[in-house]
Structure formats: structure tokens, C-alpha cells
């Protein structure tokens, strides 16, 4: 990897990214994907990748993170969506081909996709 080019790239990237950093930090949507052994074996990495691609395609602001095993192995891959002022919803057995509908319904239209829900926590605060 040519080092100088990389540093140039990063400098440009930093300037670009800094401009919308405030917006990003304040974005209200957090998506968490379980990345324990059972999740990985069930395809969680591909599900995460599909989520990143879909967010990018639709230009949606969301904070995506991964966590280790949370103990619902048979329902992996697990995807948890948290939005300010709304209950936190956990979806189970989320395969990459389910991601577009999940994003469309939950994030864009604001509807919970009931048939895929495996857990629900009341609104925080």
C-alpha cells in the first residue's frame, strides 16, 4: 500500500467527515448486530454487511455496532434497533435478503415488522 497516498486520502477524508460529524453524533438511530459464535455461524456478518449497504443506498443516518453473544443463539442473526423515544425492538433470524424490507418498514415508514420480532424493551428514560 503506497503510504503517502493513504495519508493524503485520510486527510481529505477527515476534512469531509468533520463537516457532518455533528449531525452524525446526534443521529437518533442505533442498530446493533450480534456477533457471537452462533451469530457468525448463522450469517451475522453478511447481515451486517447488507445493513451497511442498504443504509448507504438509501442515504440513511444510523449508528451501526456489533456486540458479542447475548444468549439467544437459536434466533441468530439478531438485529436490534433503537430509536429515540420508541421501544427498542430485537429482530431474530435476520438474513441479508430480509434487510431491505426491515430498513424500509422500520426506519423509513416507522412500522415494526411484527412477524420478525423476538424481543421488545420499553422506551428508555
Amino acid at each position: 500500500m503506497p503510504k503517502l497516498k493513504t495519508l493524503e486520502d485520510l486527510k481529505k477524508l477527515r476534512e469531509e467527515a468533520q463537516q457532518d460529524l455533528k449531525v452524525r453524533l446526534e443521529t437518533g438511530t442505533k442498530i446493533t448486530v450480534g456477533m457471537g459464535t452462533c451469530g457468525i455461524a448463522a450469517g451475522a456478518r453478511e447481515t451486517m454487511h447488507a445493513i451497511l449497504e442498504e443504509l448507504k443506498k438509501r442515504n440513511i443516518e444510523a449508528h451501526v455496532t456489533t456486540v458479542g453473544c447475548i444468549g439467544m443463539c437459536v434466533k441468530e442473526p439478531l438485529v436490534d434497533i433503537e430509536q429515540a423515544g420508541k421501544p427498542r425492538i430485537t429482530y431474530g433470524n435476520v438474513k441479508p435478503d430480509m434487510v431491505p424490507r426491515l430498513i424500509e418498514e422500520h426506519l423509513i415508514k416507522g412500522n415494526v415488522v411484527e412477524e420478525w420480532v423476538v424481543g421488545r424493551l420499553p422506551t428508555s428514560q
Binding site: 451486517m48 454487511h49 451497511l52 455496532t65
Partner: peptide
């Protein structure tokens, strides 16, 4: 994607 998944931890 493996590395991304870890970096997004």
C-alpha cells in the same frame, strides 16, 4: 467485512 465487524464493535 470480518475486520469491519470487529472495528464496529
Amino acid at each position: 467485512t470480518t475486520l469491519l465487524a470487529v472495528l464496529m464493535s
